[in-house]
Amino acid sequence: MIINNLKLIREKKKISQSELAALLESSRQTINGIEKNKYNPSLQLALKIAYYLNTPLEDIFQWQ
C-alpha cells in the first residue's frame, strides 16, 4: 500500500488542488483521489508532482 503526504506538503506550499492539477495537466478530482488514497498515481504523474512541489518523491509517497 502506498501512503502519501501530498495534502500536507501541498498545503504547506500554499498550493490549491486546482492549481496543482493545472500544473500537472490533470484534474482536481485526480489530486483529491490521490490525497485520499483512493487513487495511486502513475510513475509519470508521481514524478511530475514531486517536480512541481520541489520535493523528493520519497517524501511524498511511501510504501507501507
Score class of each variant (00 low, 15 high):
I60D: 00
N4E: 02
A22G: 11
S42E: 05
T55H: 07
S16Q: 04
I31N: 01
A50L: 04
K36P: 02
E25S: 14
K13W: 09
L24M: 08
K38D: 10
L45R: 01
S18E: 13
I31Y: 01
L57P: 02
K36C: 12
I34C: 03
Y39G: 04
K7N: 05
I34R: 02
L43N: 05
A22C: 13
Q64G: 14
Q64N: 13
E25A: 13
E35R: 02
Q17M: 09
G33F: 13
E11H: 08
K48E: 06
Y51I: 07
L57G: 01
N40K: 14
L23Q: 09
S18W: 12
L8M: 13
N5K: 07
S26D: 08
K48H: 05
S42V: 04
N4F: 08
S18P: 06
W63S: 02
N32F: 05
E11F: 07
R10G: 03
I9R: 03
S16W: 07
I3K: 13
Q17V: 13
L47H: 09
S18D: 14
I3H: 07
L57R: 01
L47K: 13
N4D: 04
E58D: 13
S18Y: 12
I49K: 00
R28G: 07
K36L: 14
S26G: 07
L57A: 03
L23I: 09
Y52K: 04
L57I: 11
P41I: 09
L45E: 05
A46G: 07
T55R: 04
L43R: 12
Q29M: 11
A21I: 04
L57M: 09
K36S: 14
L8D: 12
W63N: 02
A46K: 04
N37F: 07
N40A: 15
P41A: 04
N37M: 07
Y52H: 12
A22H: 13
L6V: 03
A22D: 11
N4H: 03
K48I: 05
G33C: 15
E19K: 14
N37L: 07
E35P: 02
M1S: 05
S27K: 09
N32W: 08
Y51L: 09
Y39D: 05
N5I: 07
L57S: 02
S16L: 06
I60P: 02
K38M: 14
L57F: 06
L45A: 03
N54Y: 06
I15A: 02
S27I: 06
Q62K: 12
N5S: 04
K38W: 15
R28L: 14
L20I: 03
I2V: 12
A50D: 01
A50R: 02
I49H: 00
I34Q: 02
L53Q: 00
P41M: 05
G33M: 15
Q29S: 13
E58M: 09
I60S: 01
Y51A: 08
Q44I: 11
K7D: 03
Y39Q: 10
P56V: 06
T30L: 15
T30F: 14
L20W: 03
R10I: 05
A46R: 06
A50N: 02
N37P: 02
I15G: 02
S42Q: 05
Y51G: 06
N37Y: 07
W63G: 02
I34K: 00
L23F: 12
R10H: 02
L8V: 14
K14R: 12
M1T: 07
N54W: 06
I49G: 00
E19Q: 14
G33I: 08
P56D: 08
M1D: 03
K14M: 11
E58W: 11
A46T: 04
K14A: 10
G33L: 15
Q17I: 14
L23Y: 13
K7H: 07
I49C: 02
Y52T: 10
R28F: 09
I3M: 12
L43Q: 08
L6H: 01
I2G: 04
T55A: 08
I31W: 01
S42M: 04
N54F: 06
E11W: 07
L47T: 10
S26L: 15
N54C: 12
Q44H: 12
L6T: 01
L24G: 01
A22I: 12
Q62F: 07
N40G: 11
Q62Y: 07
K13H: 11
L23P: 00
E11C: 12
P41H: 02
D59H: 11
N40P: 13
S27Y: 04
W63Y: 06
G33H: 13
L6Q: 02
K14G: 15
L24D: 00
K7E: 09
A46V: 04
P41D: 02
R10D: 02
L53E: 00
S26W: 07
K12R: 13
